[in-house]
Design a binder for these strands. Structure first.
Lengths: 211, 211
DNA sequence: AATTGCGTGTGACAAATATCACACTTGGAG
DNA sequence: CTCCAAGTGTGATATTTGTCACACGCAATT
């Protein structure tokens, strides 16, 4: 654990003003998570608001029988919205957050929240913007699974992956199937279709997004 | 438009303290929406944070082809989370809010948000709690449509309706089908199954929840 | 009483997706 | 090089859900 320079913070979080960055730099700890580490698990109490400064975190929803359903990634400059809704135990909610690569996180103890909200307007704007964007994102997920068929959902999924990971996606069909709650065979078949569309190129362990 | 006594406000919003209630009573307007009135539509700018003090508001998501998908109700004591994420135009998001009965709403102009956040801690706790509970609710919706079959989704839908509307649900099968994005025939058949389970009683225009 | 419109019931069929079985390919470990 | 495990391809089949066609009943209106 170590702290981060205010300048560095502002680079990642442009909404922060100088005072806020100084305060956080002063009071927060920085922690490194390794690939596969769990930042957040179902039914957990939060002690920190978590800001990602490096790396990448995957958020997904768990079903009763252990199914996974991909929600979104947190990237540098993002905060974990749920970690900021920290006052209450997140009851039956079972959202998982896992580092998909080595990830550096600024952890602000929750006892500072009231102070931050009250005295640092740029903090509160940041919080609002974080909620807003995550809410939007989740609503888009609802759209997809409520209204769209698998082929469109797969395409949307791949596009989102490409937005975050770049056009070369190191994913097996099985991994994709888990993320969108389908099955490997279906994904394979749909990928073939997308390939004949020219939307992707499919190789073993790699899908190149050309959308 | 008229204002509401602080006492009345606190009765509906127990998280509010005296000063906050006075401020809101001073600065906010109260508006009555009739059944069917739209409080919020896709791509709208918000000028007010909206607090429901009487009545009921239905929030649903619209698909590209005009499908509807029920998300949740706002009841007295609830605030519209999205109306509080008011800083930004809610881009491609297309969430609709419609009064399902005559509904009284306290409307706080957004120019007061900074002040409220800064000087009224009980406001900020209320806002956080509003976000948290709506986020949870939407995540539960995701669970249902991601992991469950129609029969379970129908049951969950009816239970939620009964929680809000009481055990006698004045719904046609067609209305239910729209809310869960299915078709009337499917709903009819599944309701029969639920009836033979003893979970509901089905009559014309009325379903009695016995869960 | 006849008409009409709406809500509902039902069987047959279609479409989307999941599942099963098994073959094939490829790249690395031994 | 050979073998093995992981990843992928594919047909057959099952399940779930949606669609179509049409019948029926009930209640309000004339």
């Amino acid at each position: 654990m170590f702290s981060l320079e205010p300048k560095e913070l502002i680079k990642q979080f442009p909404l922060f003003d100088q005072e806020l960055a100084s305060f956080i730099s002063e009071e927060a700890e920085t922690k490194i998570f390794n690939q596969g580490d769990v930042l957040m698990r179902p039914g957990q109490f939060f002690k920190y608001a978590m800001l990602v400064v490096r790396g990448r975190v995957k958020l997904y929803r768990e079903g009763d029988e252990g199914e996974e359903f991909f929600m979104y990634y947190l990237e540098p400059g993002n905060a974990c919205a749920l970690s900021m809704l920290c006052m209450a135990r997140s009851q039956s909610s079972s959202i998982m957050a896992v580092a998909v690569e080595e990830t550096e996180v600024v952890m602000i103890p929750i006892q500072h929240m009231d102070n931050l909200m009250k005295n640092y307007p740029s903090w509160y704007h940041f919080v609002i913007e974080t909620y807003r964007s995550r809410f939007e994102e989740v609503l888009n997920v609802v759209d997809q699974i409520a209204f769209k068929n698998m082929d469109q959902r797969l395409e949307w999924y791949l596009k989102r992956q490409a937005d975050v990971m770049g056009p070369n996606l190191n994913l097996t069909h099985q991994q994709i199937a888990s993320d969108i709650n389908s099955s490997r065979e279906v994904v394979s078949r749909l990928l073939k279709k997308l390939e004949s569309n020219g939307t992707v190129e499919v190789e073993r362990n790699n899908i190149k997004w050309k959308g």
